[in-house]
């Protein structure tokens, strides 16, 4: 019971940060909107048949929003360490796993809210939404967000200082995003790229969301959800282990 309460408190802190910092809500939508409308519109005439390009990448751009928000939110642990707040949490009489769970759930909720804002751009790219699609998409975003948050916490637990942040962006976030097939179909990729694509956990998130929103997918949703949950579980366990060590 006390663990649940601790998770709630840590979750609430992330929600409050999100709520107090409204500029960030808009700032972080800039990049996905650029990709969706500029890249989407520009490349549409070069592609023939099937759905329009912006419609095709729409679920990918939502995944991107969820990925970025999730990892940035998890990396805020590094700030908390630098500014001392992490100590306040670590000396509190709460279990170590609830610290990781609270952080993962808080970051995921924020990521889903950002993803939901993107989702409601759907009519602008010719995607029709209904209540069922919205509910399923939010669930899918949440599963993706949990996986990416857990990964982010593992990185944050090992990250020494905020200076390493650019490394994380260039060598973790960007590859996860570009390899996931968020911006292109993966059925005609050369072997080496296909292999990298299949090792990227976000691939399964993008596929899940694409199936939910526009009905196109490579894998069965059960496989997508399964891969993401197993990945989350592994990352979560590593994160709890790392927080136990720094005791």
């Amino acid at each position: 019971m006390s663990d649940i309460l601790a998770i709630y408190v840590l979750w609430l802190r992330d929600i409050k940060h999100y709520w107090y910092d409204k500029i960030r809500i808009f700032a972080s939508l800039g990049q996905p909107l650029l990709i969706l409308f500029v890249l989407g519109t520009a490349l549409t005439p070069t592609l023939q048949g099937g759905v329009s390009f912006s419609k095709y990448i729409f679920p990918g751009v939502i995944s991107m929003t969820v990925l970025f928000t999730s990892i940035f939110s998890a990396i805020s642990i590094v700030w908390d360490r630098e500014f001392g707040f992490l100590k306040e949490v670590l000396v509190a009489p709460i279990s170590r796993w609830s610290i990781v769970a609270g952080k993962a759930l808080g970051g995921s909720t924020v990521a889903v809210m950002q993803g939901a804002i993107m989702l409601f751009m759907a009519p602008l790219v010719g995607v029709e939404l209904n209540l069922l699609i919205i509910v399923k998409s939010i669930l899918a975003m949440f599963i993706i967000a949990l996986a990416m948050n857990s990964l982010g916490i593992v990185i944050a637990a090992r990250m020494k200082e905020m200076e390493g942040f650019q490394m994380v962006v260039n060598f973790i976030i960007m590859p996860l995003f570009f390899l996931s097939g968020a911006l292109f179909p993966t059925d005609k990729l050369p072997q080496w790229l296909l292999l990298l694509n299949r090792f990227d956990p976000l691939t399964y998130g993008v596929d899940l969301l694409r199936k939910t929103i526009i009905g196109i997918s490579n894998f069965h949703s059960i496989i997508n959800i399964g891969v993401l949950l197993v990945f989350t579980l592994i990352m979560f366990s590593i994160a709890v282990f790392e927080f136990n060590i720094s005791e």
Partner: peptide, 18 residues
Amino acid sequence: SLDDRLTAEDNLRFHGRL
């Protein structure tokens, strides 16, 4: 070791719950 992006009261409330 305060959370300076929250108010004074938020910090205390957070602490009390923890």
